[in-house]
């Protein structure tokens, strides 16, 4: 308990230190204006003082965050929506792609895990497809699926399928022989064996795969949305990059981190729920 408290104090101190350093690093330099006033009106404050526009201060970011929190769900046309709306789009895409991947990966993983022959036959394909960056599929997806939304979901599908598939195979293949032998002596039907013996035994490993997958999916959706644009938190970051608004980009990054943490927490809870002691 004491240690937990201490850890919390250290966390807060570290955060304070980081913000302090940031604050000092971004203090405005008092450079005299090197240009006449007519010119100065036409350019940004830093450019008028003869330097490049500066990184925002912690206060700038705080103000932007307040703006976003005050009105997270506004909708002012197709290209200007609140950060909450953008996050909702991204989460929906991730859950859809991830859900479809789970529907495919877990049954297929079961089949492969239970049959050593299938495992050997499919292994080369899995090994070649697994390391391909999901974004490399994007141009192909746009070309063949002919819909940018479907393409983004497809990319999430592709990136989340491999960890789940491989972990399911591994979990199913390494169920203890004794338990399978018991099931055989009791003459349990294959379906019942799969559901009542193998599934609970492999569940922790499968859940680990799902946790890895959702993490990767959340990483990839940001990049995918930056590519196709339209909606989503990735588009939000891209749109603010276009406007060189670093404070807004930082707000987006913060939101991405928080949602990523929430998703991971959710799956770690699920993982705990299916873990058993032998």
């Amino acid at each position: 308990m004491r240690q937990q408290l201490l850890a919390g104090v250290i966390s807060v101190l570290l955060l304070g230190l980081a913000i302090g350093v940031w604050h000092l690093a971004t203090l405005p330099k008092s450079g005299a204006a090197t240009v006449d006033s007519e010119y100065a009106k036409l350019v940004g404050a830093q450019a008028a003082a003869g330097s490049k526009s500066a990184f925002p201060t912690p206060v700038d970011l705080g103000r932007k965050l307040l703006d976003h929190l005050r009105e997270p769900f506004y909708d002012r046309g197709p290209n200007d929506k609140g950060i909450g709306v953008q996050l909702a789009y991204s989460i929906a895409r991730v859950l859809l792609g991830f859900g479809l991947a789970a529907l495919v990966a877990i049954p297929v993983g079961f089949l492969i895990g239970m049959s050593p022959l299938l495992y050997r036959a499919l292994d080369p394909f899995i090994q070649v497809l697994k390391p391909i960056s999901p974004l490399a599929w994007m141009p192909l997806a746009l070309f063949t699926l002919k819909d940018s939304n479907v393409s983004a979901v497809f990319v999430i599908f592709v990136c989340s399928i491999w960890p789940m598939l491989i972990n399911t195979v591994f979990g199913v293949a390494s169920v203890r022989r004794d338990w399978l032998n018991v099931a055989r002596t009791l003459e349990v039907s294959p379906v019942r064996k799969a559901l009542a013996v193998i599934l609970p035994a492999a569940a922790p490993t499968i859940m680990t795969g799902m946790r890895i997958s959702i993490g990767i999916a959340w990483l990839v959706i940001v990049a995918a949305e930056m590519l196709v644009g339209g909606t989503g938190i990735g588009y939000f970051v891209w749109n603010e990059w276009n406007n060189l608004s670093i404070a807004n980009i930082l707000s987006g990054i913060l939101a991405i981190g928080l949602i990523g943490m929430a998703l991971d927490l959710l799956f770690s809870r699920l993982q705990k729920a299916v873990t058993y002691a032998e």
Binding site: P78, N79, L227, V228, G229
Partner: peptide
Amino acid sequence: EVVKTAGWAV
């Protein structure tokens, strides 16, 4: 509806 797009290829 005028839709902002990320690049020319897109």
